[in-house]
Design a protein around this nucleic acid. Structure first.
Lengths: 115, 115
DNA sequence: TAGTTTTGCTATTAAATAAGTAGCAATATG
DNA sequence: CATATTGCTACTTATTTAATAGCAAAACTA
């Protein structure tokens, strides 16, 4: 699976607008989870496997390669780590955590004939 | 495919933490793209098909059902539309557009031995 | 009111992606 | 030297997505 880069055709956009490339990349299984987790600090391949309860090594490896190709993570002596870009992306993702807990999760408690 | 709801096991989290459920949901093909696009206004099934250049009707329908189950979109007389939750989520996603264009896209222009 | 179009799908099959499992080479550790 | 850990690859199976056809219902057209 080829990493989706801005400027090139990606799933959903022949023009490869950056946001489309990003959504394609992040919309692959575990991609956001890996970024999310690595913000806590660098981690090893096997550490990430443990964190991502059900990821297979093939998928993890594929995803790590794509994220590296896209400049979001890199290998360091302590294992895989977010790059500067990866950290910036995490910071954009981060508010979703609070929203999911404080807002979205509650939408399931209301009965369905809301508003 | 069952929609990932907070509080229930999802891919990657047996406890179903809200953020994990959200990442599972949004990490499925086209999910973010649909939310992204619907912010511009309600759209029909076929309108969404055109927008998502290469989505199949089966996938689109599955995704629409999941997003409805998760309270992010709803059907209106004008077609599918974001709910209040969907709009809130879009607003969290939105900054990624600018970042992708202004920051991330440029990371590919630099040569690889950056920093 | 009988076509024609549009819409929102379903069904079926094929292709792509991800999971599950085993295991191996390289390095570290005892 | 034996054992453990790490970062994978290879292989097979299961799940997800795409491709294509087509149909029923509603709206529009003549």
């Amino acid at each position: 699976m080829v990493a989706p880069k801005p400027g090139f055709p990606v799933r959903g956009s022949k023009s490869g607008q950056p946001i489309m490339a990003l959504l394609d990349l992040l919309g692959r299984s575990w991609a956001m989870g890996i970024v999310w987790h690595l913000y806590a600090g660098p981690n090893t391949f096997r550490g990430l496997q443990d964190y991502c309860e059900s990821i297979s090594p093939t998928t993890l490896n594929t995803r790590l390669k794509e994220l590296r190709d896209c400049n979001l993570i890199e290998r360091t002596l302590e294992g895989y780590a977010l790059t500067e870009y990866g950290r910036e992306l995490y910071e954009l993702l981060e508010p979703m955590g609070g929203w999911a807990r404080q807002r979205w999760a509650h939408s399931f408690e209301e009965n369905d004939n809301k508003e």
